[in-house]
C-alpha cells in the first residue's frame, strides 16, 4: 500500500504544479457556478438540476484528469520503468486512482460555495444536497476508474480522453435507447445507464442498488486496468 500512496502523492503534486491541473480545477468550479445561475433562474432553492449537470460534467472532468495517467507515462517512457519496478500492477492502479481521486476531491470541494450561497439566500432541503455530494463522489470515482482503464490501453492522451468519453457516453446512451424498448431489454439498459442511478441522489435518497452500481463500475474499471497492465508487462 505504501507504494500506491507514493504514486498517488507524486501524481497529486504533479497535477497541481501544472497549469493544466490548476486550470481544470478552476474551470470546473467556474462551470459549476454558471450552471448554478441557470438553475436558480427557476426561482427555487432546489439543487437537483445543478447536481444533475454536475454528474455530466464529472464525465468530462474524469476523462481530462485520467487521460494522462498512463498515456502520458508511456509517451514519456516512464511507464516501462514503472511496470518493470518491483511494484505490482494493482498497486500502480490503486496509486493512480488515489492520485486522481485526490484531485477530484479538491475539484468537488471547490463547488461547495454553490450550496452555501443557496443556503444563504433561501431554504434548500439539506438532504438532497448531502446525497447529491455522496453521488458526486461515487459517480466521480466510477468515471475515474473507467478513464484510467481506457488510459492504460493507449499511449495517446487525446485518444485516452476521447475513448473515456465514448465509453461514458455509451453508458448514458443506454438510458436513452431504453426509452424505446419494452420488457427486460428496457430494464437491462435502464439499469446499465448511470442516468437512472443518479436520480435518487438528486431527490435525497440513497439506495443500495445505486451504490452497488457505482461501486461495480469502479471495481470493473480497476480490474480492467490491472488486466491491461498485466498484459502489457
Amino acid at each position: 500500500m505504501r507504494q500506491a500512496l507514493t504514486i498517488a502523492a507524486r501524481d497529486l503534486r504533479a497535477n497541481f504544479l501544472t497549469a493544466f491541473g490548476l486550470g481544470s480545477t478552476a474551470g470546473f468550479a467556474a462551470a459549476a457556478g454558471v450552471v448554478l445561475v441557470v438553475v436558480l433562474r427557476g426561482n427555487q432553492a432546489r439543487l437537483a438540476g445543478w447536481f444533475g449537470t454536475l454528474y455530466v460534467l464529472l464525465g468530462v472532468l474524469a476523462a481530462l484528469l485520467t487521460m494522462r495517467s498512463f498515456a502520458e507515462e508511456e509517451r514519456l517512457g516512464t511507464l516501462e520503468l514503472l511496470l518493470t519496478s518491483p511494484v505490482r500492477p494493482w498497486q500502480v492502479v490503486t496509486g493512480k486512482l488515489l492520485g486522481v481521486a485526490g484531485v477530484l476531491l479538491v475539484d468537488v470541494a471547490a463547488t461547495l460555495a454553490c450550496p452555501l450561497l443557496v443556503a444563504s439566500m433561501g431554504h434548500p432541503d439539506a438532504g438532497p444536497i448531502l446525497t447529491g455530494y455522496v453521488g458526486v463522489i461515487l459517480v466521480g470515482l466510477a468515471f475515474v476508474a473507467v478513464g484510467l482503464a481506457v488510459s492504460a490501453a493507449t499511449s495517446n492522451p487525446l485518444v485516452a480522453a476521447v475513448g473515456s468519453l465514448a465509453v461514458l457516453l455509451a453508458l448514458w446512451g443506454a438510458g436513452i435507447v431504453s426509452g424505446g424498448l419494452t420488457g427486460w431489454p428496457r430494464l437491462a439498459l435502464e439499469e446499465l445507464a448511470p442516468s437512472g442511478h443518479v436520480v435518487g441522489f438528486l431527490r435525497g435518497t440513497l439506495s443500495t442498488k445505486d451504490v452497488v452500481y457505482f461501486v461495480s463500475l469502479l471495481a470493473l474499471g480497476l480490474v480492467t486496468n490491472v488486466v491491461v497492465l498485466e498484459e502489457r508487462r
Binding site: G33, L40, Q44, C114, L117, H123
Partner: peptide, 23 residues
C-alpha cells in the same frame, strides 16, 4: 415549495463568488 426569488443582485453575487472569487 422552496421559493428563492433570483434577483439580478443575487445573480451578480453568485457569479462573483462562483465564477470570480473561487476560481
Amino acid at each position: 415549495d422552496r421559493p428563492l426569488p433570483f434577483t439580478p443582485e443575487r445573480q451578480t453575487r453568485v457569479l462573483a463568488v462562483t465564477v470570480g472569487a473561487v476560481p
